[in-house]
Every structure is written in C-alpha cells, then in structure tokens.
C-alpha cells in the first residue's frame, strides 16, 4: 500500500510541475490584465501539435523543438492580444471572456478541419530509472527539469529586468503605470505573449507523455482553473504549488477509489475554494 502510494504520488508530483507551468500562464494573464484566457487550452494543444509536426515531419527531437515553439508561441500571443483582446481590455469582463473564447473556437475549428480529431502521439524512446518501488520515466524527469528552468527564467524576467518591472507595475496599477510613461499596450501584449508561451511550452512537454487530440485542451484548461484557484489567481508561484497539489491529488485519489471520481473531487474542491476563499489557498488576504 505505502509502496503503491509512493509510486503514484511521485508520478503525480512530476506531472504537477508541468500542470503548474501551464497554469502560471493563466495566472500571469489574470494577474496583469484581469482577463481569464479561455483560449489557454487551445494554445496548449497548439504546442502539442507543433511538437508533433516538427517531430514527425522534420524529425526534430521535442526538446530541441522547444525553443522554436517558445519563440513562435510568444509571437502568436502578441498577435492574439493585438487583434482580439486589446480592443476590449477595458470593457466589462464578459467581453474579454468571449473574445478569448472566440479565439479558442477558431483554433479548434481550424485545427479540426486540418488535423481531424484522431489521437496523435510523439513517439520518442523513454528511459526508466528504478528507485525502490518508484519507476521514474525519463520524459517526466526532463519535463520537470524544464518546468523548473522556465519558472526560474520567468522570475528572473519579472524581477530582474526592465520589461519585467513594467509588467509588475501594470499589474499593480495600470493607470499609474501609464502616467509613469510605461506603454500599456506593449506591456500587456508582452504579458499575454508570455502567458501564451507558458501554455504552449507546457503543451509541448505534455505531448511527450500522453497521446492527444485537437480537443484535449478543454480538460487541461479546466484543470488550469482549478490549479489557479488553489494557488490564488494572479499569483504565479501559487500556480506552481497549486499544480503540485493537483498532481498529488491525481496520484493519490485513484489508490483509494475508482479513477473516474477524480474529476468530481477536483471540481467540488474548486467550487468550495472559490466560495470559502476566492483569493485562493495561498492568495493574499
């Protein structure tokens, strides 16, 4: 029992790092611009398909492809922000919810037409490391490592560079930041681009563990909401910790009950946290 628990807990935690990475993007966008990005899941799927295409068409290894995907997704984020979000950024939140959902529909619609909904997978050789009862898959370990590096990079960017400082200033008070001469458009576009990038990177890593279809994004996106609420919306560190908590739950729950009860528990927890402490378990105040 303990052995099984230990094995599934480790598995869950390693997955949790990647969930956390994706949710940091959601959390960053919410924290800086008060937009819930409903195109987040679709963006993750774009990351998955980019990995798949680069691997199957050009034989580029997923980890080598990652930097390319990062750059492309950053640009894609700028594009989405400029065309769909900027015009409604000060409108009531329903407008931004619907605008990002419209982007989601377009991505999924075009994706379904091009790729159909047949499952795909990225077939790379997977190494195993045996540590007692725990089997560690090399893909999970590398993904965890990359997730940690990207998180560290995000922190350096936010706390050690001028654009990062601008992002934090805009998050704190957009009007005051503009009075200090910070371009709101450029900063918001950068934040949206970074959020999109984190989603696509997480998607690219998930593509190395699980098969996926063009519709897989919805499940990951709702998990992202659960994680963000666990960690406090708008708090990137919280998102990473929330990801670990969710990963651990996903590891532990199936040991005690049927695996299809996992979503019931996740979403009940989600609604309960929203009701009791909407700022999240780790949120301020």
């Amino acid at each position: 029992m303990t052995e099984q628990l230990l094995a599934s807990l480790t598995d869950g935690l390693l997955l949790g790092f990647v969930y956390g990475l994706a949710s940091m993007g959601l959390s960053l966008i919410w924290g800086v611009m008060r937009v819930i990005n409903l195109a987040h899941g679709a963006t993750m799927v774009l990351g998955m398909f980019a990995t798949y295409l680069l691997f199957s068409a050009f034989g580029i290894h997923p980890y080598v492809a990652l930097p390319i995907i990062v750059v492309l997704s950053l640009l894609f984020g700028f594009l989405v922000y400029a065309t769909a979000v900027h015009r409604v950024i000060n409108a009531p939140y329903l407008s931004t919810l619907l605008a990002t959902f419209a982007v989601n529909m377009m991505i999924i619609g075009i994706g379904t037409a091009v790729f159909t909904t047949t499952p795909r997978n990225v077939d790379i050789p997977v190494g195993r490391i045996q540590a007692g009862p725990v089997t560690l898959l090399s893909t999970r370990l590398v993904a965890t490592l990359i997730a940690v590096i990207v998180t560290a990079g995000l922190y350096l960017l936010l706390y050690r560079t001028r654009p990062g400082k601008a992002i934090r200033a805009v998050a704190n008070n957009r009007a005051a930041a503009r009075l200090m001469g910070i371009s709101a458009f450029r900063t918001l576009a950068l934040s949206f681009g970074l959020g999109t990038m984190l989603a696509a990177a997480a998607g690219a890593l998930i593509a190395t563990f699980f098969p996926f279809t063009i519709l897989s994004g919805a499940g990951y996106q709702t998990k992202g909401f659960v994680i963000c609420v666990l960690g406090g919306l708008g708090n990137p560190t919280g998102a990473l910790i929330g990801g670990l908590i969710l990963g651990a739950l996903e590891g532990i729950i199936p040991v005690f009950m049927a695996v299809n009860w996992v979503p019931v528990i996740e979403f009940v927890l989600f609604v309960l946290i929203l009701l009791v402490k909407p700022s999240g378990l780790l949120g301020a105040r």
Binding site: A258, P263, V264, L274, L275
Partner: peptide, 28 residues
C-alpha cells in the same frame, strides 16, 4: 445561495466548475 456572493469573473469561473462537477458526478 452560495455562488451568487461571488462577483464578476469569479462567478463565471464557479459556474464552469459547477458544470464540470455535475457532469463528472452524473457520469459516475
């Protein structure tokens, strides 16, 4: 009685959660 205390985007998020929770429940 519970969720309408939430405002704005938090209410919208809670309704997504309720939808998923009920679907997952009925599924089981």
């Amino acid at each position: 009685a519970a969720t309408l205390r939430l405002r704005g985007a938090y209410f919208a998020l809670a309704t997504i959660g309720v939808n998923e929770a009920v679907r997952a429940f009925v599924n089981n």
